[in-house]
């Protein structure tokens, strides 16, 4: 019985972390699909979201308003970042663009360091400190929130791309940017929107995880890297595969931490990244696709 409850405990902690990685990984995929840029500052949007939300809540703002406002603020930061740092360098090489995003990541972290210092902060859980007992495992309500919110976000995005006109215009830009431009679709606007939405997803992830693991100026680095692994495992342009990859990374980490030793946690996720890059550079879920010409 004890083994069983431990298993459930680890499963839930893996799913919780996985859903956070999935939100950030989705940001990677959206930005990469629309703009062709690997935004390594993606994790720092989570950090900005968490710290801003914490500040708003501590200033006495209602929780829901604080969440909405901090997501909106981070989306604005993302849009600003796209206009000031990405757009002027659009024609540069991939390496230059990646270095620009790394630079932006340092800037975000530096600003956060100045504004909030090095101490970690806590954000209160969305609905009290209570916990749920399942098969003898203790599951925080915040974990349930994390999983539910991420699943709801995926559903919303899926509907957006499948059902709305704008979503299809974005898809057109991803599939064939030249043909999309010929039809009058402005790719620069799409690029702005993609980075802003990715930033918003990152912020949401940061806000959801902050009550569980705290918020500090340097939290973006690890979240960003793990989500990056998930996105790579999923092949970088395939959103459902990136989500699956994120849960895979989350579960692997959780079980490695529980059954082996917490020291192996990072080794296992980065080992996975190396294996995928070495043997299946198109992602674990890549399948042969034919294209008619």
């Amino acid at each position: 019985m004890e083994a069983w409850s431990q298993f459930v405990q680890l499963l839930f902690s893996g799913l919780t972390v996985g859903s956070i990685y999935a939100l950030v990984a989705l940001g990677f995929v959206i930005t990469y699909s629309v703009t062709g840029i690997l935004n390594l500052a993606q994790g720092d949007f989570a950090m900005l979201g968490a710290l801003l939300c914490m500040t708003f809540v501590n200033s006495g703002m209602p929780f829901v308003l604080a969440i909405g406002l901090s997501i909106a603020a981070v989306m604005a930061v993302g849009a600003l970042f796209e206009r000031l740092a990405i757009q002027p360098a659009r024609r540069s090489s991939v390496a230059v663009l990646i270095i620009i995003t790394i630079g932006a990541s340092f800037v975000f972290r530096g600003i956060a360091l100045l504004a909030w210092g090095t101490d970690p902060y806590a954000l209160r859980p969305f609905t009290g400190h209570g916990a749920l007992e399942v098969f003898g495992a203790v599951i925080q309500w915040q974990s349930v929130w994390a999983i539910v919110i991420s699943l709801a976000s995926f559903a919303a995005l899926h509907l957006f791309f499948q059902r709305t006109y704008i979503g299809k215009a974005v898809a057109a830009c991803v599939i064939n940017p030249f043909a999309a431009r010929l039809m009058g679709i402005d790719i620069r606007k799409m690029s702005l929107g993609a980075v802003a939405v990715s930033a918003g997803l990152g912020a949401l992830a940061g806000i959801v995880i902050a009550p569980i693991s705290g918020a500090s100026y340097d939290m973006g680095m690890m979240i960003g890297l793990k989500a990056f692994i998930a996105a790579v495992v999923g092949g970088l342009t395939n959103a459902p595969a990136a989500i699956a990859g994120a849960f895979l990374v989350g579960l692997l980490e959780s079980f490695a931490e529980g059954y082996l030793s917490s020291g192996y946690k990072e080794a296992i996720s980065f080992g996975l990244l190396l294996l995928v890059l070495l043997f299946m550079p198109n992602g674990l879920f890549a399948k042969m696709t034919g294209k008619r010409v």
Partner: peptide, 30 residues
Amino acid sequence: VEHIVDKGICLVPERRQIFDSLSVKDHLLL
């Protein structure tokens, strides 16, 4: 390129440049 459509000129490019995964209806609406 994206502003030329507003002037009333539309290019149907070489090799058709169809969006593989979008439906025929979506193509027309886009």
